[in-house]
Amino acid sequence: MKTGMIAVVLAAFAALLATTGTAQAESAPGCSGTVEIGSTAYVDYGGQHIASVKQFKGCGKNWAYVYAWQGFVDSGKGFTLRTAIGAFGSASQQEADRYLGLTIGHHNQRELWSTGTDTLDTCTAAFGAVVIDGADHTPDNHTSIRC
């Protein structure tokens, strides 16, 4: 009986840990009701995904989010994340007209939210970049454009 109870407690604790990590990526700072919109994009470096980029809406705003993957963090390379919302004139436009809510993280900060932007009536995409210490280029990417 005691062994069964321990198994139940451990299973509940494992479930709590699994959901805790996910919930953080669902809530922008100061806005607990965000929902992901558009497709997730991936930042690649050296043939590997090193970060994810997502766009969220909530609290009357758009938000960009970038998250450095554990494998990249474990590589020991120093990095700085950057993220912003790109505003487009249309979904077929190739380049953003402007970038809003630009946020630059602290050195080796693993996840980063942009500031919220008042762009729900605009075509937008979330942009994310990983500035790698000593690298000759800055890998970046953006989500699909949402109008």
Results as ranks from 00 to 15, higher is better:
40 T>E: 12
58 G>D: 04
63 W>E: 00
29 P>D: 08
53 V>K: 03
116 G>M: 04
121 D>R: 06
9 V>T: 11
60 G>H: 02
40 T>P: 01
95 E>S: 13
15 A>M: 14
43 V>M: 03
131 V>C: 09
61 K>G: 00
144 S>C: 09
79 F>H: 06
19 T>G: 08
17 L>P: 03
11 A>M: 14
147 C>G: 12
66 V>N: 03
113 W>G: 00
97 D>N: 10
100 L>W: 01
39 S>K: 11
91 A>S: 13
4 G>R: 12
73 V>Y: 05
100 L>M: 13
18 A>R: 08
123 C>K: 03
57 K>E: 12
34 T>E: 01
10 L>N: 13
138 T>L: 04
24 Q>E: 11
14 A>W: 06
124 T>W: 00
145 I>C: 04
141 N>Q: 07
145 I>W: 02
71 G>C: 05
72 F>A: 08
104 I>P: 03
17 L>M: 15
142 H>Y: 13
66 V>Q: 03
12 A>N: 07
126 A>Q: 05
126 A>N: 07
20 T>H: 06
8 V>I: 15
60 G>V: 00
115 T>F: 02
50 I>D: 05
100 L>Y: 02
38 G>L: 06
28 A>T: 01
49 H>D: 13
115 T>E: 09
119 T>E: 05
90 S>W: 09
85 I>Y: 00
120 L>W: 01
76 G>F: 07
114 S>N: 01
19 T>Y: 11
101 G>Y: 04
145 I>R: 14
104 I>K: 12
124 T>I: 12
67 Y>S: 11
39 S>A: 14
23 A>Q: 14
51 A>T: 07
23 A>D: 13
88 F>Y: 15
94 Q>Y: 04
128 G>S: 08
139 P>V: 10
29 P>G: 10
37 I>E: 10
116 G>C: 03
64 A>Y: 01
14 A>C: 12
9 V>L: 15
69 W>R: 12
17 L>V: 15
58 G>Y: 01
48 Q>L: 08
144 S>I: 11
115 T>W: 04
33 G>M: 00
92 S>M: 06
103 T>K: 09
47 G>V: 08
129 A>M: 11
28 A>F: 00
117 T>D: 00
30 G>H: 04
2 K>L: 15
2 K>Q: 15
129 A>V: 05
109 Q>A: 11
39 S>R: 11
131 V>T: 13
53 V>C: 05
75 S>R: 07
131 V>E: 15
121 D>C: 04
34 T>L: 01
95 E>W: 07
104 I>T: 15
137 H>W: 10
37 I>A: 10
124 T>N: 09
74 D>W: 07
84 A>S: 09
35 V>I: 14
133 D>T: 15
34 T>Y: 01
7 A>G: 12
95 E>L: 07
75 S>E: 10
4 G>W: 05
